[in-house]
Design a protein around this nucleic acid. Structure first.
Length: 892
RNA sequence: GCGGCGGUGGCGGAACGGUAGACGCGGAGGCCUCAAAAGCCUCUGUCCGCAAGGGCGUGUGGGUUCGACUCCCACCCGCCGCACCA
């Protein structure tokens, strides 16, 4: 007989062909008799309706070929999908492509290849690779976000949001490159404020942009985190991003312009207890009133210059907290509502227009930034909270001390951001602990109509306009008569026109497509122009998980009844880099669509798993570093099973892992040994297993007869088989191997539930090692059972070789078998090794009977030879017994 | 600065408060072979010791406990988010 060598290139395509031919992983929506899932899966018995499970990995952005990160997510997801299937679930496990986006467009600009073509090529290579990896995907539901059949519904959702007032247009400051004549994303502006492409100094322009009102959902996005099984760190990131702060809105009045018509400037503060320490007032450079306040005054020139300078700073520059504080006086004052003081107004870039009201009260005694500004501009610093270490000082009464306190000269301990009793404030509040004073002052403000308790969020509305070609068109037209008009639903999709020149010039590249832009108003039939911006690609991916459920529905985005069957996603898997944006947007869409009556659930992803990065030589893989590991090359050489298994074996999947070629060879050796031993035990040699007959044609049904190869196969996972094996073979070694198999079932099952694939695979390795060790001392049935169990447990990680082995050993299709059940009796042992400790140190090990009671165990321990040596006349003062484990003698 | 995650052999990593180092890699020795590759077997934290055995060992320093990689307190280092958010 020819040398039996494990050859994944023989094995893998054969099983892939079978799964493709029989559409094994497709699952129908109705859990009825036509449901393929039911028909195929033995786990779903006719008697009881199978539970449904939706296992989803984040959809890939198709660019080039899949990289090692893709191999990792889909290996994890596929393991979970298989495990769910074999534990009685009908599993939805689809695939799609996040096909719109900037990289494809930039690539197109560089190479001249149309984004549609480069995307199509890339999708093809992803499809090919995913099939080669043997991922169990329901290909019947495949989608791509750039497909009009998909984005038609993206546009419909946009219009739903628009009609509900959740999509709106607003002027916003955007980065504008005067040379390229285009809006730039913040990421496209370098640290010096230059355009990434042409190097021109970027300007800030106020342009009308589309926003989605995600801030309406801030509170719910925050609170509902409590009800979902997500990693704590992801929830924390989302909480931080939402950034809820409690405080008060307080009104500062300016009467300088026209005393008859005072202007009220509300500010948000988390520390209303420090209001008495407010010694100046600062506005953001973008604040619409800044220029108005200085118009025609001696300050106008300076302020104008300052504002221009500030607006042109890069985000990075402006956001640097270490930077010296800069600003300019407005020459105006506002009234501090709590004490009537007139305090000077400034403009400074450390105040952000996007947060709060775009203006702040400055309390230099108790805020670091205000303090720095006060120092730089010689403004008074007043302590109004006594430090914890410092006893409350009496309120200053005489003039001299007041001046001293105001200038903060005596106080090196300022700024002090902590809590403490109030000082220098008002007789009603002085001495009151700050926490208490906070409430009292807010109440007082409320009574006086000068403020109220308020909650502020860091989260801002989502700007979705992109002045780009390769994205989903926004289905709005502008009519001279009717204004902004949504494209009627029955005219969707608004197709992305086929243009020749998609390089950005003027505005969006789409603006150049005159024929497309010029249209008629759906409302009055007059001339109108289309919106030329496209949507942020995150819009596309905020609802794709819904579409999979009902992917071929041409009448609606989905049928709510179908969603009921699958949603929410039971297990979502993806990179932690999406912890904030994608996951927040998808949650927002779900809630908004639920409010509009389209969904009856409020969270899209019940459980989330975030996988770590794969590095090489400790560094992120990149072309420039030359340390890229290509999945295609690995699979070419070792096969998909080895690659998939290794990437799961390398370490805990939620952590970063460093790729090692030697480590992978180890896994390959393991699969080889397993396969070779299985071939030997089954006696099938090189023959092709019969569950995957070559060239059977397109039979819809699997071959019905599974001719057993010799001995009747053990039904893995059913009690009687073990007993049979046990009595048939009878030997101690048989029993030991049987026990090891059940130990492995127990271990792998538990590990799978907690995503510990590395230790699960290690357990199968142990089982194989035991099979090899006891090879000559155990009967063939026991070997067959142990190896079939190993294959069965390995199937979620290395499906091809596992299917092959299982078939050789049992003639059955492993994926149709329910997950092996552990026999609790076989987990127990008659005897075990009792650990004997003296003062907590291991001194001996002795054999103890499983049923031995506490007294017997103590006795065994005391009698252990090496324990004796360590007792040595000392007195035993305490004996700790952990039955089944150890005895610890405490001696003195 | 705030938040999160992590620190265990030569390496990747295992360990419900109960035998630290499973499993794999690497290394050493052996078998097989004319030879090599592949495969198989044994050993492999460290120090002392011929051995039996013992000492030391999970970033550092304390604490709780019969017993701590694990729990508590205070630090150090590394990585990742967010960051002038009032």
């Amino acid at each position: 007989m020819a040398e039996r060598r494990y050859d994944p290139h023989q094995i893998e395509p054969r099983w892939q062909a079978l799964w493709a031919r029989e559409r094994t992983w497709e699952v129908a929506n109705e859990a009825g008799p036509d449901g393929r899932g039911d028909q195929r899966s033995a786990a779903a018995s006719d008697a009881e309706q199978a539970l449904s499970s939706y296992v989803l990995e984040m959809l890939p952005y198709p660019s080039g070929e899949p990289h090692i990160g893709h191999l990792k997510v889909y290996s994890v997801g596929d393991a979970i999908a298989h495990y769910h299937r074999r534990t009685g679930h009908r599993v939805l496990h689809p695939m799609g492509y996040d096909a719109f986006g900037l990289p494809a467009e930039n690539h197109a600009i560089k190479t001249g290849v149309h984004p549609r073509d480069s995307t199509a090529a890339s999708i093809e290579s992803f499809q090919r690779e995913f099939r080669r990896w043997g991922i169990s995907i329901d290909w019947s539901r495949e989608l791509a976000t750039h497909d009009p059949r998909y984005y038609r519904w993206t546009q419909w959702i946009f219009l739903e949001l628009f009609r509900a007032g959740l999509a709106y247009r607003k002027e916003a400051a955007v980065k504008w490159c005067p040379k390229d004549q285009t809006v730039l994303a913040n990421e496209q502006v370098d640290a010096e404020g230059r355009c990434e492409r042409c190097g021109a100094i970027v300007e800030v322009r106020q342009l009308e942009q589309w926003f989605l009102r995600i801030t309406d959902y801030a509170e719910r996005l925050l609170n509902d985190l409590d009800g979902i099984e997500w990693p704590e760190h992801v929830k924390t990131m989302q909480r931080n991003w939402i950034g809820r702060s409690e405080g008060a809105e307080v009104t500062f009045r300016c009467e300088d312009l026209d005393p008859a018509h005072p202007i009220d400037y509300p500010v948000f503060t988390t520390r209303p207890d420090t209001l008495f320490g407010a010694t100046f007032f600062v506005m953001a450079p973008e604040h619409p009133d800044v220029l108005r306040l200085v118009e025609g005054t001696e300050h106008e020139h300076e302020v104008r210059d300052y504002v221009n300078h500030a607006l042109n700073e890069s985000n990075e520059e402006r956001g640097n907290a270490e930077k010296e504080k800069t600003g300019a006086p407005l020459g105006r004052t506002v009234t501090n509502p709590v004490n009537g003081e007139q305090i000077p107004m400034y403009v400074a870039d450390y105040v952000l227009m996007e947060y709060g009201t775009g203006a702040v009260m400055a309390v230099p005694g108790h805020d670091e930034r205000d303090h720095a500004f006060a120092r730089a501009y010689g403004l008074p610093i007043r302590r109004v909270i006594a430090g914890a270490s410092e006893p409350p000082r009496p309120t200053f009464t005489d003039k001299d001390s007041q001046v001293q306190a105001d200038w903060g000269l005596t106080d090196e301990s300022l700024p002090y951001a902590g809590e403490g009793p109030l000082v220098n404030s008002h007789p009603d509040f002085d001495g009151m602990p700050s926490r208490e004073a906070l409430g009292a002052i807010v109440q007082w403000l409320d009574r006086e109509g000068k403020g109220h308790a308020s909650v502020n969020y860091r989260l801002r509305d989502w700007l979705i306009s992109r002045q780009r070609y390769w994205g989903c068109p926004i289905p709005i037209v502008y009519c001279e008569k009717c204004g902004m008009v949504p494209v009627p639903d029955d005219e969707l999709p608004v197709r992305l026109p086929d243009i020749e020149d998609y390089t950005p010039k003027g505005r969006s590249p789409l603006a150049a497509a005159e024929e497309w832009v010029n249209t008629t108003c759906p409302s009055c039939a007059g001339t109108a122009r289309r919106e030329t911006d496209t949507m942020d690609t995150f819009v596309d991916s905020s609802w794709y998980f819904l579409r999979y459920c009902d992917a071929s529905n041409e009448q609606a985005a989905w049928d709510p009844a179908v969603l009921k069957e699958w949603m929410p996603v039971d297990q979502y898997i993806g990179g932690v880099e999406h912890a904030i944006l994608h996951l927040m947007y998808a949650r927002f869409f779900t809630k908004a669509l639920a409010d509009l009556g389209h969904l009856d659930f409020h969270e899209p992803f019940k459980a989330l798993f975030t996988q770590g990065m794969v590095t090489k030589d400790g560094a992120k893989m990149s072309k420039s570093r030359g340390n890229v590991v290509s999945p295609a090359a690995i699979i070419e050489r070792y096969g998909a099973d080895t690659a998939r298994c290794y990437i799961l074996f390398i370490g805990p999947p939620d952590q970063d892992a460093d790729w090692s070629d030697e480590g992978m060879e180890g896994v390959h050796r393991f699969l080889s040994r397993l396969w070779r031993l299985a071939v030997e035990v089954s006696g099938t040699g090189e023959e092709v297993p019969h569950a995957a007959p070559p060239r059977v044609g397109t039979c819809a049904d699997p071959p019905s007869a599974h001719a057993p190869t010799g001995d009747p196969p053990h039904a893995v996972g059913h009690g009687p088989a073990h007993v049979q094996a046990r009595t048939a073979e009878g030997g101690d070694d048989d029993l030991e191997l049987l026990r090891k198999a059940h130990w492995a079932i127990d271990k792998v099952s538990g590990d799978l539930r907690r995503f510990a694939f590395n230790t699960a695979i290690a357990a199968v390795m142990e089982l194989l090692n035991e099979c090899s060790r006891l090879r000559d001392r155990t009967g063939v049935d026991t070997q067959r059972f142990a190896l079939a169990t190993a294959a069965s447990l390995l199937f979620p990680f290395a499906p091809h070789v596992a299917a092959d082995i299982y078939d050789r050993l049992t003639g059955e299709r492993v994926w149709e078998q329910s997950w092996p059940q552990v026999d609790p009796e076989l987990l127990e042992r008659d005897e075990y090794e009792l650990v004997c400790q003296v003062n907590g140190k291991l001194r001996d090990r002795v054999q103890a009977a499983a049923g031995a009671d506490t007294e017997e165990l103590k006795e065994l321990c005391r009698a252990a030879p090496n324990v004796q040596a360590h007792l040595d006349g000392k007195q035993i003062v305490k004996e700790i017994v952990v039955p089944g484990k150890l005895v610890n003698l405490v001696v003195r």
